[in-house]
Design a protein around this nucleic acid. Structure first.
Length: 781
DNA sequence: CAGTGAGCGAGCTTCCGCTTGACTT
């Protein structure tokens, strides 16, 4: 308990409830003794149903949700209740958005707050004036907004809890579907199919280096590219041969001034993208590090879709920019949030104190902070001024032009602090061009025609998927990271690498009047750490898209949001909105065919005449030999890494059965050696003994020699190093340990095994019995 | 951490958004 709680209890007549503990601490500091500020830590109630196999909604009677307290918040709610009783006035100061309004209402219900002592307030900045101002202008709870939230919540529950059981029956148990996650999976599946269906095409790109002497008498080199690509080698070669005989001159020089503006300060989504690109952070890591920065008071709230900066932040940024770079580098800016469905309850993500240019903390914290600081500072800086130059070189007798483009930064402006990166691999940084004028005669130094292949669309990374989701308006800043975790936990998608394919390409070079022709190879289509759909993800997605196209539609959320907005504006009734959705949706759920998803028939096994299927089983993709309808039980085997039920051939599938686990490898001393797969992975069984097969060895291709080696190792491990009556010193995977009957005891760090005595062992056992061996605390999965 | 284990089948699973949990030596 707080040491000064007694004092507060006596003096505070006001209880203010905000959402986060950090906010509570800051605000209490502003408000003084008359006010006690406590956090609700988010929602305090939710629709009943978790782990109870129940919808928690009365579908027959106005979709009335059955709200229950969040169990983990029982103590918190108890505290809030007693503090609320003592207070004269309770100020509900949750965020000013749909969820925040609902939190305020739930608090009022849960804490049994009477109308006359309850006030709803909102503030947009955490400053003393903003908060005092809010307290002077309280309002009532906006029930239209609360109902909009209820509609959202009820609809998500219905979609999730009616679709998921369909998948359990149709595909396998434990699967899930939802308004957000299923669309996220769809994006990944469809992108992969685009890539698979992508037909690469080759064309010859021509680049030439020219030299000449400019008006100032300087030797100049101009690197250009032809504004035409040749479809065939013959055409490219013909052009190069002609090229040797042509004369060239600068046809035109265009200079254009331009400006570049800084990006707005970070939102959750843009922070995740930049941290992924510049720091290689996965989305969850970015959020974890940001959370610790927030809790240390170093940055503002990290779950936001707003690009807005407080007036105080804009003023401090000005001081910093002027101090660091000078007045001409400063420009005050207000950014407007454009993303779909933005709720703007918070500020953009920025340093709490922009004057703190660096911080103490872990390397990750320092790096992320630096990124946030630079981006916020740059957003309050002047435009960069650039000059782009385009030089066109004409070749006599050819309709094509050689073009060079360059860019010169005249004034770096915001770029001095921060430049945003990009996912696009095709963007090349422009370079500086030499000073030349039209009419200048040039000589060709070298010309290269290179066969280039068009590139397939890019796979999603975690961060680029978040970006796409934000564009579609699905998911919220508080859920991006968890959604990405969920679709991986369900094994719909996985982060993985794709090996590229070797591709031969042709390079024609003309230099000093000599034409050479070379064949080279490159790797095309390789990818690292991208999101890839699994067979399960594809099967689930295809099924859902087929049966529930309305829900899987990319516009579904955006359309629903329009309805929620109408409810919030008092122009629609939430029950009617939900009903209009539910009636046809539920009909579709009821109309689903019973029975499992159809499996892919690969053909017939020539040896047995039985059919061979590829399908999704209980624990993933598998091959089935024989029909489930026949009397004989079918045989099953799982696929090897890299194989897919969608592409595997009959031959490949049959091969898997040759060494399908379990199988008999051979004999040793007249006893069978069996290779199998158990709870803990592959094992060898011999003479009633089990030995695990280590990761490096493929159980389907293990040799007798390898098995003997493993058995010997096991025998060594079973022989005690030392023996003192009942007490034996054993050699285990994690070093030596003590064994008495079935009980094991850890040796203290640094124990010398060779010189261990019986007395020492007894001492160790005695000591470890005083303290419990295992902690009762287990992390939940 | 914990020194295991041989594949039945009953009963379980699930949504999206808010927010941070903490039973320790």
């Amino acid at each position: 308990m707080r040491p000064f709680s007694e004092k507060i209890e006596r003096m505070s007549k006001n209880l203010v409830i905000v959402e986060s503990p950090e906010k509570a601490r800051t605000i209490e500091h502003f408000l003084g003794n008359e006010y006690h500020v406590l956090p609700s830590k988010g929602h305090v109630r939710d629709i009943e149903g978790v782990g109870k196999n129940s919808m928690g909604i009365d579908l027959q009677h106005g979709y009335e949700p059955n709200y229950v307290m969040e169990e983990s918040k029982a103590r918190l709610i108890q505290t809030l209740r007693s503090e609320a009783q003592k207070a004269d006035t309770v100020w509900l100061a949750s965020d000013e958005d749909r969820e925040g309004e609902a939190i305020a209402w739930h608090l009022k219900e849960v804490l049994n707050l009477p109308e006359e002592k309850t006030k709803r307030i909102v503030f947009h900045e955490i400053t003393k004036t903003a908060i005092l101002n809010a307290i002077e202008h309280p309002r009532d709870i906006d029930y239209n907004l609360v109902n909009a939230q209820q509609a959202r919540r009820v609809m998500d529950r219905i979609v999730g809890f009616e679709l998921s059981p369909v998948l359990w029956r149709k595909i396998t148990t434990g699967l899930s579907a939802g308004r957000v996650q299923s669309v996220a999976v769809r994006l990944i599946v469809e992108r992969e199919r685009e890539i698979e269906g992508f037909k690469t095409s080759a064309a010859y790109r021509v680049a030439a280096d020219f030299i000449g002497k400019n008006a100032q008498g300087e030797e100049v080199l101009i690197k250009t590219e032809l504004n035409h690509r040749f479809a065939t080698k013959e055409e490219a070669q013909a052009f190069l041969e002609e090229f040797g005989k042509m004369s060239y001159s600068v046809r035109d020089v265009q200079r254009k001034p331009g400006t570049k503006s800084p990006a707005p300060p970070f939102t959750t989504s843009t922070l995740q993208q930049e941290a992924a690109r510049k720091l290689r952070f996965p989305v969850a890591k970015t959020m974890r590090v940001a959370q610790s920065l927030y809790e240390a008071g170093k940055i503002t709230y990290m779950r936001t879709d707003s690009v807005n900066l407080s007036s105080l932040a804009i003023a401090t940024a000005r001081e910093e920019v002027v101090d660091l770079y000078g007045t001409n580098y400063h420009k005050a800016r207000n950014f407007k949030t454009s993303s779909k469905g933005a709720q703007e309850a918070h500020e953009a993500i920025r340093p709490t104190y922009l004057s703190h240019r660096t911080i103490t903390g872990t390397t990750d914290e320092k790096n992320l902070y630096e990124l946030i600081w630079k981006r916020a500072i740059a957003s309050q800086m002047a435009d960069a001024k650039v000059e782009t130059t385009r030089v066109e070189v004409a070749c006599e007798g050819s309709p094509y032009l050689f073009v060079a483009s360059g860019e010169v930064v005249l004034f770096d402006g915001f770029m001095r602090a921060y430049v945003q990166s990009t996912d696009d691999e095709n963007v090349q940084s422009a370079h500086l061009l030499p000073q030349v004028e039209a009419g200048l005669q040039l000589k060709a130094k070298e010309i290269v025609a290179q066969e280039t292949y068009s590139k397939a669309p890019q796979r999603y990374t975690e961060a680029s998927l978040v970006k796409k989701m934000e564009e579609l308006g699905i998911g919220r800043p508080s859920t991006y990271a968890t959604i990405i975790e969920t679709i991986q936990q369900r094994h719909y998608v996985e982060r993985g690498n794709v090996q590229g394919k070797k591709q031969e390409y042709n390079v024609l070079t003309l230099k000093n009047g000599k034409l050479t022709d070379k064949q080279k190879t490159e790797i095309l289509g390789a990818d690292m750490g991208k999101l890839l759909p699994t067979d399960l993800g594809r099967a689930t997605n295809d099924y859902l898209v087929d049966e529930f196209p309305a829900i899987l539609n990319y516009d579904f959320t955006a359309k629903a949001e329009e309805d929620f907005d109408k409810i919030a504006d008092g122009k629609a009734n939430w029950v009617k909105v939900v009903d209009k959705f539910y009636k046809p949706f539920h009909k579709m759920v009821e109309g689903v065919n019973p029975g499992k998803l159809e499996s892919r028939l690969l053909g017939t096994d020539p040896a047995t005449g039985k059919p061979v299927y590829a399908k999704i089983g209980k624990t993933g993709p598998l091959i089935q030999l024989g029909s489930t309808e026949s009397d004989e039980k079918p045989r099953f085997t799982s696929l090897q890494k890299g194989q897919s039920i969608y592409t595997i051939t009959l031959e490949e599938a049959l091969q898997l059965f040759e060494h399908a686990l379990p199988y008999v490898l051979g004999e040793k001393d007249g006893k069978e050696i069996t290779i199998g797969k158990g709870k803990f992975g592959p094992y060898v069984r011999y003479d009633g003994e089990f030995v695990s097969i280590p990761k490096g060895i493929d159980p389907q291709h293990i040799t007798i020699e390898e098995v003997e080696e493993l058995l010997n190792q096991k025998a060594d491990a079973a022989t005690p190093l030392l023996e003192f009556g009942d007490i034996r010193v054993m050699n285990g995977r994690y070093g030596a340990y003590l064994k008495v009957g079935d009980a094991n005891y850890k040796l203290p760090r640094g124990t010398k095994v060779d010189t261990l005595t019986k007395e020492q062992c007894e001492e160790i056992i005695k000591n470890s019995e005083n303290s419990p061996k295992k902690s009762s605390f287990r992390r939940k999965k």
